[in-house]
Design a protein around this nucleic acid. Sequence first.
RNA 1: UGGGGAAUGGUGUAAUGGUAGCACGAGUGACUCUGGAUCACUUAGUCUAGGUUCGAAUCCUAGUUCCCCAGCCA
Length: 563
Amino acid sequence: MKVGSGKPDFVRAMVAEDMKTGKWGGRVHTRFPPEPNGYLHIGHAKSICLNFGIAAEFGGKCNLRFDDTNPVKEEEEYIRSIIEDVKWLGFDWGDRLCFGSDYFEQMYEWAEQLVKAGKAYVCDLNAEETREYRGTLTRPGEESPYRNRSVEENLDLFRRMRGGEFSDGSRTLRAKIDMASDNLNMRDPVMYRILHAAHPRTGDKWCIYPMYDWAHGLEDSIEGVTHSICTLEFENHRPLYDWFLDELGVYHPQQIEFARLNLSYTVMSKRKLLQLVEEGYVKGWDDPRLPTISGMRRRGYSPASIRNFCGRIGVNKFNSTVDIALLEHCVREDLNKSSPRVMSVLRPLKVIIDNYPQGQVEELKAINNPEDASAGMRKVPFFRELYIEQGDFMEEPPKKFYRLAPGREVRLRYAYYITCTEAIKDADGNIAELHCTYDPATRGGDSPDGRKVKATLHWVSAAHALPAEVWLYEHLFTKENPDDAAEGEDFKSNLNRNSLEVLTGCKVEPSLEGAAPLSRYQFERMGYFCVDPDSLEKRGLIFNRTATLRDTWAKIQKQQQSR
RNA sequence: UGGGGAAUGGUGUAAUGGUAGCACGAGUGACUCUGGAUCACUUAGUCUAGGUUCGAAUCCUAGUUCCCCAGCCA
């Protein structure tokens, strides 16, 4: 599957160069290595598209690998969701579903090898002492008093660590590198810590667990990865990645770092997403307002639109924030071509066609998708009583308002021209219903006398419409950069209070009867909507708004108001 | 103030010594049975200062700004 568009980014250029020089024997093997401690988000999608995309483009392979080396943070549920999300995005790892934990035994043997070579030692410093000995950014560290234990003692202690003799945090296995290194990662990094915790996959077999720096390169090496693509913050870790593999003398992949994705008006860090979920600011990991893959799926994003987005944003080595408008553009672009049109009234206003025969029903032909002739036609019922959108009528229309008003004629899409004769108000002075007349000669929506109208409205038959609930979403945050908060406040203070608006009493076209969960539609003139998975079991039809359509009138209104 | 990275329109990205291009956004207009879509046009950029060169986003020097690193997280 071709994911990228146009010119190769610097990673692809590197891979292409390696193919030319035969560095890896003509092989390309990447991996997507999530830690199962949260749900995947659009930032991960960038990495997924990069890794799987490169493999596909160069005739290579890409593994899905869980970097599950920390049992206290990782859960089965996350593994399940990650598998589902990567698959949904359209990628295939074949039989290469891998787990770092499957290599624990091999990693342990390699650790013993380093101990025997005098390159690793058991250290009795606790966490706080370790930190003190490490020094600071500008001051070199000091060597641990346990640094020069004999190989025999280290081996004995390390085996007893594995055997469960010692308590959590009481000892570590450390690489013996250089406490004076400018790179803090090289100041005798911890390889193993003691953690008497059950692991989702290995149960209680282990009470020592490998650290990322020790484990990751080994996982890549074992799997025969050629290009180990990770994010920028690991650039400082590459010397360590290389050191372990070199000291072991094993197959040595190349680590390449790229910048993670930032998106305006949202947050991407797992920590912040977890906080929003746990503290109830959103309804769960799959809340449609979240940039999680599951949230976007529920919102109505298509896998193709996400892949397309990832191909457009590029890959680089500097931090940047992509305008969320580009993401929205990508969904609209895809959904415009693929989604069936339907007429739904979100905020209904009753219309009575006074001169339309009582009890009569006509089935009018409507086009399912003007962008796709193969989508065919459908019938929509027309009736004496209808609903139109409240916003499509104004008693005193301002300039540039083309829609219905007293005495004005408009077209009902695929139906008739109607003219408003009277607006009935309720006790509070709100418009309660409209009386109109229709012109029978305009059946289907065209006037034989060539008469033009300025507006075409969507509508539903009051007798046939289905009730529905529609959830409208706006950006989760009011600020482009949610972290831009006042003194003493954090990103949560920038949460958009209007990010969700629940509309009840909506009226949707009868053809939507039994619409499948997650199916996507364009509600004409209103936007793209997706059937919420909770729909059927709970309160009947529920739709999530994926994106609005471009709304020229809303723009004019805004301009008029700001004047 | 140690080390490692990086700077191109509002935003994201091309141009590897030879016309600064594309996309999103914004604006204007055309068209339209979705004020949708589509199409056309416009807008706006090489971090700064020197230098090399016929010619610099690209090479050199100095500076500025931003990001990452002091978890027994990944």
